[in-house]
Amino acid sequence: MALALRAAILRHARIPVVQTLTLNGSKLGLFGTVRSMSSHGDDNLDKQAVVDRVLDVIKSYPKVDPSKEVDACAYTYSLAPIFYSVLQDSCIIQVTTDVHFQKDLGLDSLDTVEIVMALEEEFKLEIPDKEADKIDSCPLAIEYIYNHPMAS
């Protein structure tokens, strides 16, 4: 009896398929069911993002930071505030994508290694020593990180 009733109901009842939520709250899309197999993103980093982040790391390095440089100058010559702003404009070291750490930024070899270590930390990489020795300028750093499969 119960079985017959169940079959009758099941024949007619139609439950609409609604979209369910996945664990992280996003809707199940066509590709939403595919989960990446590693904690690293499988997608490669965007070139522009790599450039921006590399430049940020270099700019935040204490010896490169332009504001600190200007402050030091201002202390030395005890400048009037008017000159201070002029100095700030002229004294800023331009950190661009084609900058060389030692030639353009006046850093030494230890600073270079330190910057490479900062980049390692930023992109969660481990750059082997031989490769790390070769990275001495911004373009090389960007290229290495952009081509590295594990950069994130």
């Binding site: 070899s109 290694v113 270590m117 930390e121």
Partner: peptide, 15 residues
Amino acid sequence: RSRTFEFFRSACRSI
């Protein structure tokens, strides 16, 4: 010199 840099790297990696 290269050993020094190597050691500096290992020190940085243990931060």
